[in-house]
């Protein structure tokens, strides 16, 4: 094909590690630096790297545009519904004690859930923005 063999092989090698690192940053947010925002952006960066090396059409087979567009509102909804859940159960909005009463377990779970919501929205919107920019040719 073209002369970018090294680039393509390197992308293939690096991509699992980038996604792995994103998941690590996401789940390790309680104990070290990290969280939904950073993980979402790193995840989006992996998709952007794949799109740049392999071209638009092949990238959209593995990472369909529709999926990322749906992810944007889903993340916000996860966040909102978590808040409403505690509201329905008689606590303040976004008070995670409603989820579990064993000490700080509820707080841990709540933080994990809303970080997941943040991750979904951020990565979805970043990839959608990038796809829309390159579509505009």
């Amino acid at each position: 094909m073209r002369l970018d063999v090294i680039l393509r092989i390197a992308t293939k090698i690096f991509l699992p590690f980038i996604f792995m690192f994103a998941i690590y940053v996401q789940l390790h947010g309680d104990f070290g630096p990290g969280g939904g925002f950073q993980a979402g952006v790193i995840l989006a960066a992996g998709v952007v790297l794949y799109t740049i090396t392999f071209g638009e059409r092949k990238a959209k087979e593995y990472f369909p545009e529709k999926l990322f567009e749906i992810m944007i509102p889903v993340g916000v909804l996860i966040f909102l519904l978590t808040g409403l859940y505690s509201l329905i159960h008689g606590y303040n909005f976004l008070d995670y004690t409603a989820i579990s009463h064993h000490g700080t377990h509820g707080q841990h779970l709540g933080v994990l859930i809303i970080e997941m919501g943040v991750l979904i929205t951020v990565s979805g919107s970043m990839v959608t923005i990038f796809y829309n920019f390159i579509n505009r040719d």
Binding site: G29, D30, F31, G32, P33, G34, G35, L94, Y96, G103, T104, Q107, H108, G110, V111, I114, E115
Partner: peptide, 13 residues
């Protein structure tokens, strides 16, 4: 909250 990283606990909780 039982979370070591204060930034995360302030941000999310």
């Amino acid at each position: 909250t039982g979370i070591e990283n204060v930034v995360t606990s302030v941000l999310a909780s």
